[in-house]
Amino acid sequence: MPVAGVDVGSVAAKAVILNERTKAVLAHALVPTGWNPRQAGEDALNRACSLAGVERASLTRIVGTGYGRIALPFADKSVTEITCHALGAVHLFPRTGVVLDIGGQDSKAIAVDADGSVQDFVMNDKCAAGTGRFLQVLSGILGMDVRALDEAAACGKPAEISSMCAVFAETEIVGLLAQGAKPEDVAAGVFRSLARRMVSLSRRIACRGECTFTGGLASLPAFVRCLSSELGVAVNVAEQPQNTGALGAALIAAR
């Protein structure tokens, strides 16, 4: 019997359909969240169902997660993204001890046990510093999408970015560009400060075992390189890192 996990984040809604018994992924889908989290969750789930060739009605259980988790009327249960990312990451990489996730509006470092249960976690504070939001600001200024930013950063020499506040950084970046800094250097600089922020967040929890990086930014190769060089260790990255939360939710649904 199939089960589903739906993760409605601030940027995208993700759905994963699992075989309840084998835990094999039957299909996954991603749609932009836009302004209506409920609709986005609905769309992601429907798309995943049709990709998997299963009827919505045949899903035995649906678990919702992400900031829009309470807006999902079809979910049997809602679980936080912390618990879901931890389970998803350990399922993909069984030796994971730490999960790092950079989301659209918050970042988190999670210490996990071998069975995927959360031991400890920390999240960034109130402001957008150190979150994916920060890259959105940069992509707005440079007029590049996030992929293009990653390609640019790959060949840049990191410019010094001191402010991690999304608002002040904007001023700083505009200033750097006005002084003739190259966009690729600015992009590399922003990547580095974002990665450093993540490293200091992760040092607040006791880290052991392998480090798994989840969330949309994990699909940017230059950013992953930057993060692992700042961390001083290699990081595990899944094929679809942004689906980790939805996968964790589906795993709970399969319990």
Partner: peptide, 14 residues
């Protein structure tokens, strides 16, 4: 409130 709720819920799930 929403951000704190995630922390509180995740902590209790733990």
């Amino acid at each position: 409130t929403e951000q704190l709720k995630v922390r509180a819920e995740a902590f209790l799930e733990m």
